[in-house]
Design a protein around this nucleic acid. Sequence first.
DNA 1: TTTCATGCAAAACATTTGCAAGTCT
DNA 2: AGACTTGCAAATGTTTTGCATGAAA
Lengths: 159, 159
Amino acid sequence: MKKAREIFIELLRKDGLRLTRQREALLNAVFSTHRHFSAEELYRDLEKDGHGVSIATIYRSLTLLVEGGLIQGLDVGNGRVLYEHTLGHQHHDHMVCMDCGKITEFVSPEIEELQDEAARAHKFKVTAHSLKLFGYCSNCSKKHPDARATPAPQTRSGS
Amino acid sequence: MKKAREIFIELLRKDGLRLTRQREALLNAVFSTHRHFSAEELYRDLEKDGHGVSIATIYRSLTLLVEGGLIQGLDVGNGRVLYEHTLGHQHHDHMVCMDCGKITEFVSPEIEELQDEAARAHKFKVTAHSLKLFGYCSNCSKKHPDARATPAPQTRSGS
DNA sequence: TTTCATGCAAAACATTTGCAAGTCT
DNA sequence: AGACTTGCAAATGTTTTGCATGAAA
């Protein structure tokens, strides 16, 4: 992902910001994985690699990347936010396994179109949307034969 | 909404729980509004009405109502959860105005169907789903003529 | 050198919990 | 009486911030 680095530097430059050791290490870590990661996980990974970056800086940089459109946050409920790159990835939605936490991506142009239609009908100007299916992935659903349909988990202890 | 009260009492009874002054006041407050409310707002409303209920009890009761399927939490991002009744309301999705906070509900059976299809294709067992459109309501969009499409707000300071 | 960035620790928030005192049944 | 509830305050977990120090440009 050479491009991400260039875009990031460009982004920094444009605002008179600097390319520091920390921002560089973080960028590398973020774009070397294809997983969905939390701020905390990223913090630990960088720690392990010897590229220590404080948790405060993790958050500040993540914000920078989100604003720059390089990555995106995905709120999986319970106040947990996972990040994923956006760069070069087409828009997609997510299925969140409430047992193992597995994230499955899927795309549906038809759904997108219907969303836009609904927005239009309400004269609502959409700038972002978020569609998440909560439940059990193919593996875990074996363990939950009788899962009843419940509202999406919103409390900390839930799920 | 007389029914809500009965269902709630039934629910309590079934688990050997009690109908206290607090739970009753809270139930009334919850079902006397059609707005989407936060725990904090509910706390303040009850305070004002002279039916003081501690914030701890607010949360404990709200959890009870969610588990009982009488209400539902809606995570509007930034760690803010709004509640709404479920009882007697058909399932719907939400548009969240990032300026004035207005919540607009909409329904789309077609989207529901497409979601189920996607889940089936991935052998994912859906127990809940959440679809939110973020942007500007018909009123506020006048003030944001050039809103660029950004990822959904996930940080506290965002929006 | 002059900003801008970092790390640290403290603050902020929303929510949860332990526990002693109070209250339904 | 006895089990369940409440309120309070302290604990949580995640994210943010103030500030002095350190580092790009």
